[in-house]
């Protein structure tokens, strides 16, 4: 089945983002396929991360940020009047650029959010810890040290723990904001393998500055660029990754992926 035949999990229509008076992203319209990996690529400062943060409304934390347009998770309006952002974020998990494990034990890092959602049964929590750590390939390393501080682990392990933490609340979508940029090559490889296996279950959207990574792991690619006159970020090209990297339709995409700028 081609990635284009997959059902759209997130749909945006003319989505715009403003920081104060600055128009940051203009008219982003895209359908993000379910259970596939979509990569957002583009030069530094083009608004890749801002776009990612539009999906789970993390931009809400910035007082001057304002979004307009439409975005849907299935039939659920992300920017609807009655949308409760906490419910939205339970459906759309996020992994950040630098591993941001909380200063508490490995176990608590994973169980914190489920507990806040009302799961108090210890057996159930143990099950969540084991299954999420299994999914990120850390169960064998961590099963005897669950009570130890998470901050003592290596950056690669911390980042995989952050992924485990994100899937512990059973989201539909996982956002990854340059999640390998702070990791060594070996850890990067592990996280990339993890992305591929998670994509079977979760719709995954990644932001990456590495075109190699986008080419290696993603099914769809979105190329974003700021046009030089208006200084506004636009979606230049959005296509299956294989297609974009072999036969880019837009001249600017071609220039970027062949390394002529950016």
């Amino acid at each position: 089945m081609s990635v284009l035949d997959k059902k759209a999990k997130i749909r945006t229509k003319n989505l715009n983002l403003y920081y104060g008076n600055a128009h940051c992203l203009c008219d982003i319209t895209m359908d993000i396929p379910e259970n596939a990996i979509t990569a957002i690529i583009g030069p530094s400062g083009c608004g890749k991360s801002s776009l990612l943060r539009l999906f789970n409304r993390m931009n809400d934390l910035i007082p001057i940020a304002r979004a307009s347009g439409e975005a849907y998770l299935d039939d659920f309006s992300i920017y609807g009047k009655d949308t409760y952002v906490v419910e939205l974020r339970k459906k759309i998990g996020m992994v950040f650029q630098k591993p941001n494990v909380f200063p508490m034990s490995i176990r608590e890092n994973i169980t914190l959010a489920p507990r806040r959602q009302g799961i108090t049964n210890k057996a159930k929590l143990d099950e969540i810890v084991e299954s999420t750590l299994n999914q990120v390939g850390l169960w064998n390393d961590f099963k005897d040290i669950l009570g130890k501080p998470a901050l003592n682990r290596s950056a690669g392990e911390q980042q995989r723990l952050c992924i485990a933490r994100a899937i512990a609340i059973n989201p539909d979508v996982i956002l990854m904001d340059e999640s390998c940029s702070a990791l060594d090559p070996e850890s990067t490889m592990k996280v990339e393998e993890l992305m591929a296996s998670l994509a079977k279950k979760y719709t995954t959207i990644i932001v990456t500055h590495s075109m190699e990574q986008a080419r290696r792991v993603s099914d769809m690619s979105a190329f974003i660029m700021i046009d030089s006159e208006e200084r506004i970020g636009r979606l230049v090209e959005y296509a299956p990754t294989m297609e974009m990297f072999s036969t880019p339709k837009d001249k600017r995409t071609e220039d970027y992926i062949t390394g002529r700028f950016g």
Binding site: N56, M58, L61, V86, E87, L88, R89, K90, K91, G93, M94, F96, K98, N100, F102, P103, L112, A113, R116, Q117, C162, R165, A166, I169
Partner: peptide, 18 residues
Amino acid sequence: LPRTYKEGALALGMTHWQ
């Protein structure tokens, strides 16, 4: 505190107070 703690917690669907 690092900003990332707060962002991480909110991204997990916790309320501001949680």
